[in-house]
Design a protein around this nucleic acid. Structure first.
Lengths: 216, 216
DNA sequence: TACAAAAAGTGCGCGTACGCAAATTTGCGC
DNA sequence: GCGCAAATTTGCGTACGCGCACTTTTTGTA
């Protein structure tokens, strides 16, 4: 179901997409994001400028995608991986924290770049919206596949909470002084911010779960 | 607090904004949205094209704003107007339904226009995100002004629910046959869609309210 | 292997979005 | 009234986003 489309086609497509976002990030780091034209990225990735816009609808999107990558869809997988015993709210919170923490975000240089430029920051924060779709499936599966509409609302709410946490994280970062170690981006509070943002939604998530259980 | 800025300045600004969105809608209705250039709207409103983009960051935004207007901020006011006795979830649902129903949306012609063109539909649906800020204030006031962070998450969740309801409404509309009366847009189900979308969030809203009450 | 259908890549052209700096307008104290 | 500082408007130039039609590549089938 993942690689439904035949094979070589989809394979090359993903390769091109990856080449584009890596080229975008590399060039942005090398010369600063303001000195990178779309044409440069396309050329570096070996495709035409027009093709670039078939993959990304803005310059910022490609750069951010290099850091974000497939994180959004992994959140859904992480939730599905949790045992059925744990409460839905906990499963979601743990999965989100797990996926939005270090492993995927270890690109320190890229993050300072993103948090510095407002346009990139906005694109980075807005990228959280992409969890909605996979998350809808994951939550729908937990609440027994009924009431997909409720699952979508809950997923969108979780996405909004993540967005708020990231917004706070990246903006609070700007004002905060660099830690002695030399890192400008304090990665410490992010898990806390995520959990705090998700906490208010816990009653809704658990209630949906209970409602589903009561029906069976 | 509403008209904080001196007076004549802000007044003219609002006048210009209104002139722009009304011109945008009028021209779009007259010749179809694809035959309206930004220059035309600016000229009709008596400002330069560049000024247009000081007020709206896309062509769709102005057209949609003519319908949306100040609805988002009125939702917050409507919530504040509810007596303290009613549960927060009910107050929110009632206020949202009240504001997103007929009075402001009676522009039938404009709505068929918007639901027809994908770009306008998207702009219309995304406009719901503008409730987040005023709604945050309204909810924060209800939960005793503490924990503004939770209020923001809840407000963003409500905004997401509204967005989903509008999305369903405008898309479902496209496929539905015109009612005998001649109207293509069935305004009937919108309140139902809104309530259904908001329902899953009720536990979270009420829990926040109770938590605040328990602290006092 | 050959071939037709489908899908991805490409070039072109138009209209848009926005940074920048000059010009104009507004608000306020005197 | 007068003039100055701040805010707003405007023109210009650049780069971007994307629809469209066309070319190239991949896929499934005979």
């Amino acid at each position: 179901m993942t690689a439904r489309r035949t094979g070589l086609r989809e394979q090359k497509k993903q390769a091109t997409r990856q080449a584009l976002r890596e080229a975008a990030l590399r060039l942005a780091l090398e010369r600063g994001p303001d000195n990178v034209r779309v044409d440069d990225i396309a050329e570096a990735a070996g495709v035409s400028p027009r093709t670039y816009n078939n993959y990304f609808s803005s310059r910022e999107e490609a750069i951010v995608a290099a850091v974000t990558a497939e994180r959004e869809s992994r959140v859904a997988a992480a939730i599905a991986a949790r045992p059925d015993g744990v409460r839905l709210a906990d499963a979601v919170a743990d999965a989100v924290v797990e996926q939005y923490t270090d492993p995927g975000t270890r690109q320190g240089d890229a993050l300072v770049l993103i948090t510095t430029r407002p346009a990139l920051r906005e694109a980075f924060v807005d990228a959280a919206a992409r969890v909605e779709e996979p998350l809808t499936d994951a939550i729908a599966a937990r609440i027994c596949d009924r009431d997909r509409d409720a699952a979508r609302v809950l997923a969108a709410s979780v996405a909004a909470a993540i967005r708020i946490a990231l917004d706070r994280w990246t903006s609070g970062t700007a004002g905060a002084p660099a830690v002695p170690g030399g890192l400008v981006v304090p990665s410490g509070p992010l898990p806390d911010l995520l959990r705090a943002a998700l906490a208010p939604l816990a009653p809704a998530l658990n209630a949906a779960e209970e409602r589903a259980a009561a029906r069976d």
